[in-house]
Design a protein around this nucleic acid. Sequence first.
DNA 1: GCTAATATGAACGGGTGT
DNA 2: ACACCCGTTCATATTAGC
Length: 628
Amino acid sequence: MAQDSAGDDDYVDWNTDDDLEIDNFQSSPSPVHSRADTLVGVAVTTSSLSSPTTETTDLVQMGFSDEIFATLFDMGFPVEMIARAIKEAGPNAETSVIIDTISKYSSDCEAGSSKSKTIDHFLAMGFDEEKVFKAIHEHGEENMEKIANALLSCPEAEKVAEVKEEDDIDWSDDEINYADLLISDDEEDPNSSNENGNQIRSLVRMGFSEVEASLAVERCGKNVDIAELTDFLSAAQMAREFSEFHTDPEEQKPRHDVKKRRLESNRESRSSVDDEPVRLPNPMIGFGLPNEPGLITSRKLPELARGPPFFYYENVALAPKGVWETISRHLYEILPEFVDSKYFCAAARKRGYIHNLPINNRFQIQPPPKYTVNEAFPLTKKWWPEWDTRTKLNCILTVTGSAQLTERIRTALEPYTGEPEPPKHVQKYVIDQCRRWNLVWVGKNKAAPLEPDEMENLLGFPKNHTRGGRMSRTERYKSLGNSFQVDTVAYHLSVLKPIFPNGIKVLSLFTGIGGGEVALHRLQIRMKLVVSVEISKVNRNILKDFWEQTNQTGVLIEFDDVQNLTNDTIEKLMERYGGFDLVIGGSPCNNLAGGNRVSRVGLEGAQSSLFFEYCRILDVVRARMRRS
DNA sequence: GCTAATATGAACGGGTGT
DNA sequence: ACACCCGTTCATATTAGC
């Protein structure tokens, strides 16, 4: 994002304030803004922030700062279970004792009735047992989405704090056996049966479950080759080959040299030849997809990466060589999770995410988006030519095709209207243009670029999210092109819901149009506090409008330039509000993105180097959270 | 109707991965 | 071989502000 609006902010410039007079600021609306109450909401008081009202939060806050808690947490144990075990075994008990205690819960569970995986899944998330049974009874055991939705829409859902039994992971060992977590156990020859009938039936005959098969068809589209479906379904097996995700004995050693290396490498250093190159997974599904059972559900984080706050960093997956290695090195050696959002919606979006979030018991927000273009935009179906075989769109960019292009395509196709299909060379021209500019068919021989509201739809934003706020059409395209895919991010952030039942305090850097905030909102995770840093004024307007329109009860504070957010200001904010639970943001990709022909110079580029500001700020937050 | 600000359209390769 | 990509820059068209 170009820093074109730096300095013209009409908010109070916090960065120049020697003293952070937040109370004064709250009670004295900006003379320019008529809605100062949205800038700093008044519903949350300091006392309610600092005095947790439920036991769960208390235990989390007590335990999470504890090394043992962090260890167990990283091993994939649910928060509630750790909390209960620590309580039972005493806060000074050794890790092994606590693990033994947890194992006892596990064997208690085995001794009882055999519960289904679905039940365990939701119990582990902390939902009330009775409600889980009810939801499963109503929606059927296989419809995880509807069950999750039913449970989440239940008003009492946030009150759950009872400890529940976990699933059948072998608790006695530090190492999680990934193979045991993979559900697709039978691997029959995919070529054994391949008739052109019902694709789902074929897949079932190949040994996939009906749920898996129907999901694959839903995800990949109905017109795709059976081979593509089997590719998709074999992702679970392929996950075993992602050696970098497995626990590496080397990885468990504390890395004392990391800090030193970070200092040494700092800004000038761009060489990462000594690092192992990161490998993009294929298919690009990260640690797994919603309702795709049996992918990686646990990982071992490097020592340095543990502990509060949670953080979530995002950037383009196909950055120049060495960039992700550098990013990873500066973010505590966590390996990136690469995900293509085409597995979450009808448009591709290949991104890398580095975070220290737990990865078990993720869930998808509701309603799930449409997976194909025809489903997402039903009106295009009527005009979509047979010879355009696309079922997914390419990545949403910051620039779109022109109206003239639509006209050129129309005149190219016009002469062949009576015929079954145009000649091959015309087809090729049209298809090439459609792919390059991400066009959809909106009329006879009429292929047009996506409208802003259609992009909002694909990216998981509410309709008209970017409308208003003095935002022009061009700016909407630009901001949307720079945004998160909400469903993807929400899936990763969903694990926060049971951990923070009372809501979270968020530091949002490079907020843009608020993809992270929208994700949290759609997860129904209350945002007690959002400190947002965004250079573009119109984007800040969008977030402010969102905050107001969704009747947020928390506090929203907006800053403009991340470079002006001093360590001192961050410290004071944390002192005032009691720290941050989540630091989230995707730094500028201008100098990394493939479309840039002028200045694709890597992390040292004028905009992309702001990544180091993310690191700086995250370090300040971590330092303080660890002190307390 | 003038000027200034902003919007639009087109030309601009190549790195990275399959 | 082929596909794809949170982009930049300039000239021109259009709109905003007076």
